[in-house]
């Protein structure tokens, strides 16, 4: 279609700015300013009670030597490295199951989605009981199958897997997005594959997965951002990241630095390092996926 030029375009541009103005203002105040301020603070000693004092690279230097910084970083990455792929796989499989034509589907969908609706605080309290090593529900069940469950919450080796189970359980958002995209896969393509005599597996691998690959990428990026920021559940369930700091995550340490120890500058430096890592990871996954992700025209 042809768009207007001349006075019409000018008027449209004016309207465009007016319509976009909430975001332009919001972007400047709530994103651009804090981001820039955060860079500045990260070079300062800042306790909020006193004006910031410039200290150069001190915060970053201190971070490099801070054992706890590395500990929380490795905790966070090892958590994300398990939780992310497992969560993506589970939610994809669930979405595929929910995409079949079976009676009572609304009920199943709700059941699978409930976990992501439960407030994180109750979720944390609930899981404390499920995972209790002595009389927790999970271990009692496992015992019925002849397995003696570990002391999930008291043993540093098992506390992170317990958190992973919780994350997988609460992955309803990703599941919904998969489901929506699965419903968007044109039946014509699947029928064509049927005519070619493709088996169910081949259809999934060669038609469905490529068709939803952009959504998988979307979920991957969102998952990276989300799992690296894990905070609320461990913060409530494991005070100070017990046992042995195995559940002390990056965001918890950042929060403690900012609001318990009042080292706002230090916390800002941590925030920026995290931002850079997420940017790099996102960029990396976009680059890697460009070969595999299949965008349809249109």
């Amino acid at each position: 279609m042809t768009r207007n030029t001349g006075p019409g375009a000018k008027r449209e541009a004016r309207a465009g700015f007016v319509f976009a103005s909430p975001w332009l203002i919001g972007f400047c105040i709530f994103l651009a300013y804090p981001l820039l301020a955060s860079i500045y603070f990260s070079f300062c000693d800042y306790s909020v009670l006193k004006p910031p004092v410039y200290v150069g690279l001190d915060n970053y230097k201190e971070l490099m030597g801070d054992e706890l910084f590395w500990k929380t970083l490795s905790n966070t990455f090892s958590y994300a490295a398990i939780a992310l792929p497992l969560g993506m796989l589970t939610s994809l499989i669930l979405a595929m199951l929910l995409n079949t034509k079976v009676k009572g589907m609304p009920l199943f969908r709700t059941l699978f989605f409930i976990p992501s609706l439960v407030p994180q605080v109750s979720l944390a309290c609930l899981w404390l009981w499920v995972f209790n090593g002595e009389h927790g529900v999970l271990n009692t069940l496992l015992l019925k199958f002849g397995i003696e469950g570990p002391n999930w919450l008291g043993n540093p080796a098992w506390s992170k897997p317990a958190l992973v189970v919780m994350a997988v359980w609460g992955g309803g958002n990703a599941m919904l997005i998969y489901l929506a995209s699965l419903q968007d896969v044109p039946t014509s393509l699947l029928e064509a594959a049927d005519l070619d005599g493709a088996s169910g597996w081949q259809k999934t691998l060669n038609v469905t997965l490529p068709m939803i690959s952009p959504v998988m990428l979307f979920n991957l990026v969102m998952g990276i951002i989300g799992s690296l920021q894990v905070f609320t559940v461990p913060y409530i369930m494991f005070p100070n990241g017990t046992p042995e700091r195995s559940t002390y995550f990056y965001t918890s340490y950042l929060f403690d630095n900012a609001f318990r120890f009042h080292k706002m500058g230090y916390a800002s430096a941590m925030g920026w390092i995290m931002f850079l890592m997420i940017l790099a990871l996102t960029y990396g996954s976009l680059r890697l996926s460009s070969k595999h992700v299949h965008y349809q025209g249109g």
Binding site: P156, N240, P243, R245, F261
Partner: peptide
């Protein structure tokens, strides 16, 4: 002033000690 931090550290050390790590 950093007792909160120091105490957290001691608690983590306590865990390692009592878990024989």
């Amino acid at each position: 002033g950093i007792w909160a931090q120091y105490n957290d550290e001691i608690s983590a050390a306590y865990d390692s000690i009592s878990l024989m790590h």
